[in-house]
């Protein structure tokens, strides 16, 4: 059997991920805290403010926590992947990147291996949020048939895969082009702000002011959140007194957008890494 070229990089990253219990534990605690602290706090606030509002008739009413859950998944994955290149920065400055770059392994395989391990970690975090959310009263996959649930899970995996790959490429690009952990963290933090706040993952996109609203439209986090809401809640529902509807075409466009973004960012990152000189 031919072992794919990216496999050693993937294996190493996963081994490290599961080896150190403190790192593993914090990566699992991260989504839990998002959901429990932020989710509950926002849910409580919104539900008090909206007590008097009458939801639009004829739609499935979902509570705020259910509405928030896909956004929490999206946010967790975004932060995890945005910092996902950090280990490569360490490899570059103090580690085995020289060994890899001087080996016959194509640099393409380095990126693919890290992307695949990032997607795997993201999916683990997603499972944690979904399971914990269900325990805490989030109605995930409500009203879906077993086949529908399988399709939904496949959809979630595809959306997370494309999104994680795109964000991780940005993170890898920065790991290769910045020289210090401080520089890397500074840029990452600045990037995370518009990604996180100019999106519909925390609140409905309709309420955003002009400018930010347009920003949200091209924000990959918005498209990931759309996809996750579509697959976990449904195509028509109401939350916070607002009606939400997603058509399959809109969801397909969101997915294509994420895939295109991932491919472009992969190409840019590969070009950078192919030209990188590290001695």
């Amino acid at each position: 059997m031919m072992i794919p070229g990216f496999y050693p990089v993937f294996k190493r990253d996963m081994t490290r991920h599961f080896r150190f219990k403190d790192q593993l534990f914090t990566s699992m605690l991260h989504p839990v805290l998002w959901l429990v602290l932020f989710g509950f706090a926002m849910a409580g606030t919104f539900e008090r403010l909206l007590q008097a509002s009458v939801p639009p008739a004829g739609l499935v009413v979902v509570n705020y926590l259910t509405f928030m859950c896909p956004g929490m998944i999206a946010a967790t994955i975004m932060f995890a992947n945005l910092y996902g290149g950090f280990s490569v920065l360490f490899d570059k400055n103090w580690g085995i990147l020289r060994e890899i770059l001087a080996s016959p392994m194509p640099r393409r395989d380095l990126i693919i291996g890290i992307i695949l391990s990032a997607i795997t970690k993201s999916l683990i975090q997603t499972v944690i949020i979904i399971v914990l959310g269900m325990i805490l009263g989030v109605s995930t996959f409500a009203g879906q048939s077993p086949l529908g649930i399988i399709i939904s899970i496949a959809g979630i995996i595809l959306f997370i895969g494309a999104f994680s790959a795109a964000v991780l490429c940005v993170s890898l690009y920065m790991a290769f082009t910045t020289s210090s952990p401080e520089g890397y963290q500074g840029i990452t933090t600045i990037l995370s702000m518009p990604l996180f706040f100019a999106s519909n993952s925390l609140y409905p996109g309709e309420g955003l002011p002009p400018g930010i609203k347009e920003l949200a439209l091209i924000n990959p986090l918005t498209h990931l959140t759309n996809g996750l809401r579509f697959f976990t809640i449904g195509d028509h529902f109401t939350a916070l007194g607002l009606a939400f509807s997603y058509t399959p075409v809109e969801i397909a466009i969101s997915f294509l957008y994420l895939v295109c973004l991932a491919l472009i960012l992969f190409w840019v990152t590969l070009r950078t890494i192919n030209r990188a000189i590290i001695t």
Partner: peptide
């Protein structure tokens, strides 16, 4: 240029892997 988080055997194994 070693990964301090890998064992001695894993270090050599990884090297063998990237050289196929």
């Amino acid at each position: 240029t070693l990964d301090k988080d890998m064992t001695v055997r894993e270090t050599l194994d990884f090297h063998g892997d990237i050289y196929r």
